[in-house]
């Protein structure tokens, strides 16, 4: 182990902590979707800033890894930049903004549009890992419900949505059933991204620092969004395409451009959009057109 800046161990955490987290990860991979409690450490950022995801990444990262960090699909928000710098300093690993070049992708709130590969690992930052929490506040009861596979209450919530709004109103953190057994919170990603989790070639790891839970979805695992036969799960769609690259099948962000109600829709996944533009795709508001 060479000397690290500031005397920190490689990737900040001491080796014993990493072993503890790896054990939790192994357990999580062995029981897909099951929330494994772990001894979450104090990290140099507050709860709510991705401490769970950072601990998972710190436990698995090696010198040869290439790390990408995104927040809401973008590589250049404060959160993404800080975390990327954190690992650059404490692990001296290569970082990238290109999904296709990364071996570890830590994310908050989005899954990249580029299909993931077998040699990649997704690390999700999770605030509240318990999908039943808002229906059943008691931890004792939710543990029992998971243990006994009693998920009727989850469907009651969806039923109430339809009865009240005519459709299922949940648009993000949409509950899924993993490997036909555990109901899991996919983290606050939009439901648009749920299908990407199903049968994904990459390993998906989830870390919740404040709640002290780790869970996992192994590669090629069945992930089904909960729904009713006559109200099947549907992803969001837009009438518009990306104004910059013209993509019609990505998750679009709405950007207000001026104070006169002007707005445009662009790909939330900035790397994917850049890739498309590099390949020659254009949209209605490509910089060439605006200038």
């Amino acid at each position: 182990m060479s000397a690290q800046p500031g005397g920190y161990n490689f990737a900040y955490l001491d080796e014993q902590t990493k072993r503890m987290i790896r054990r939790a990860i192994l357990k999580a991979v062995a029981v897909p979707g099951y929330q494994v409690p772990f001894a979450s450490r104090e990290m140099p950022m507050p709860y709510g800033w991705g401490t769970g995801g950072v601990q998972v990444t710190a436990a698995i990262i090696t010198r040869t890894d290439v790390l990408k960090v995104i927040d809401q699909g973008s590589d250049d928000t404060t959160n993404a930049v800080s975390i990327r710098k954190f690992f650059a300093r404490t692990a001296d690993v290569a970082t990238t903004e290109r999904t296709t070049e990364a071996s570890i992708i830590q994310t908050r709130h989005r899954i990249p549009e580029s299909p993931l590969r077998r040699d990649q690992i997704m690390v999700y930052q999770v605030p509240i890992p318990e999908p039943l929490r808002f229906l059943e506040p008691r931890e004792t009861e939710t543990r029992r419900m998971h243990a006994l596979e009693e998920y009727g209450l989850m469907h009651v919530k969806l039923y109430e949505d339809i009865a009240r709004h005519g459709h299922i109103a949940t648009t993000y953190a949409y509950p899924v059933k993993v490997n036909g057994r555990y109901v899991t919170d996919p983290s606050p990603t939009p439901k648009f991204d749920n299908p990407k989790m199903d049968n994904c070639p990459a390993l998906q790891l989830f870390g919740a620092g404040r709640e002290k839970r780790i869970y996992a979805i192994p590669p090629y695992t069945r992930v089904e969004s909960l729904d009713f036969e006559d109200h099947p799960f549907e992803v969001q769609s837009w009438e518009e395409s990306c104004a910059l690259c013209g993509a019609g099948d990505t998750f679009l962000d709405e950007v207000i451009t001026d104070d006169r109600g002007g707005r445009m829709f662009v790909c939330s996944d900035s790397d994917y959009c850049r890739e498309r533009r590099d390949a020659g795709h254009t949209g209605v508001q490509s910089p060439e057109a605006a200038e």
Partner: peptide, 9 residues
Amino acid sequence: MAVGERHYG
């Protein structure tokens, strides 16, 4: 729903 009924209607 608790015993597996999945048709809202």
